[in-house]
């Protein structure tokens, strides 16, 4: 453990040359960028950057995490370097969080130097998706189907929800692949899930076909954003917390808009 917790420990570290300091701040912020991009909470991002930076040899780091980027200064002896890194939101990938967490522990134990850290971060950045897209489509369909069973649906409702949620998930993947705006993706996916789930309603399948309509849009639920937002606000990271809460609220409103469109078309709400 090379995390400096007292000023005495800080003084004992040899000062890093300027180019090595540049390298350290680059690596630490790269790890932070991966975490912010793929859905980590702010406390974890800040701690990881700080631990990587100090374990790789600098004395101290000052870190500000914003919703759209990271600002950090690294200090070693009398030298310091400051860097801004813009972060674009891509999505949720818990495998990246797991790998960066593992890497930061390796660095803290002194088992990874700057060269190895760079190789590992490159590998994690290029890792891609853990699961095949068809596995995701099937499992999201099954998950939403199981939710329809939980809210009291019968087997017909389960089958209709499985079909509707899988279809909507496939469409969502296609739209994300084509870099369509996030809100348009949400509204369209919610609308299409409703239209597919209304098959059960039109054919009078099962006891209560309305349950399929409610369960099929749940694949869009912004669970990661809302939980992270609450955690950030609890721990005093108000900027990222509020921004994530607004993101989650807008996704929820987007789902509602899709539902309203579909209801109007199906004459459920009596427009």
């Amino acid at each position: 453990m090379h995390v400096p917790l007292s000023p005495h420990e800080v003084i004992q570290k040899p000062p890093l040359p300027h180019d090595e300091l540049t390298d350290v701040i680059k690596l630490a912020m790269w790890a932070g960028q991966l975490l912010l991009q793929y859905g980590a909470d702010t406390a974890r991002i800040e701690e990881t950057i700080h631990r990587i930076g100090t374990a790789l040899g600098c004395d101290w780091m000052d870190i500000i995490i914003l919703p759209e980027g990271i600002i950090a200064t690294t200090v070693s002896g009398v030298e310091f370097r400051t860097k801004v890194r813009r972060v674009v939101r891509i999505g949720v990938n818990f495998s990246v969080l797991d790998e960066v967490n593992h890497l930061s522990h390796l660095i803290m134990q002194g088992k990874a130097d700057r060269v190895m850290t760079r190789q590992e971060l490159r590998r994690i950045s290029d890792m891609g998706q853990t699961y095949n897209r068809w596995v995701v489509v099937l499992m999201v369909g099954l998950g939403c189907g199981a939710l329809s069973k939980l809210i009291g649906g019968d087997w017909w409702v389960f089958i209709v929800t499985l079909f509707a949620a899988s279809g909507a998930m496939f469409l969502r993947q296609e739209m994300i692949k084509r870099h369509i705006n996030m809100m348009i993706v949400v509204v369209t996916t919610s609308f299409v899930a409703q239209m597919l789930a209304s098959v059960g309603l039109l054919l009078h399948l099962g006891e209560n076909p309305y349950l399929a309509l409610a369960a099929s849009v749940l694949l869009l639920v912004p669970g990661v954003q809302l939980v992270n937002s609450a955690q950030d606000i609890f721990q005093g990271f108000f900027t990222t917390g509020i921004s994530r809460a607004i993101n989650g609220t807008f996704i929820t409103l987007g789902i509602a808009v899709g539902v309203v469109f579909a209801n109007g078309l199906l004459r459920l709400g009596g427009f």
């Binding site: 859905g39 949720v92 818990f94 999201v140």
Partner: peptide
Amino acid sequence: WSALVSVGFAILFQAPRKT
């Protein structure tokens, strides 16, 4: 059923296989 929901969403969030 709730375990199935959790696994479905864990896969949507690309959670590592071991988890």
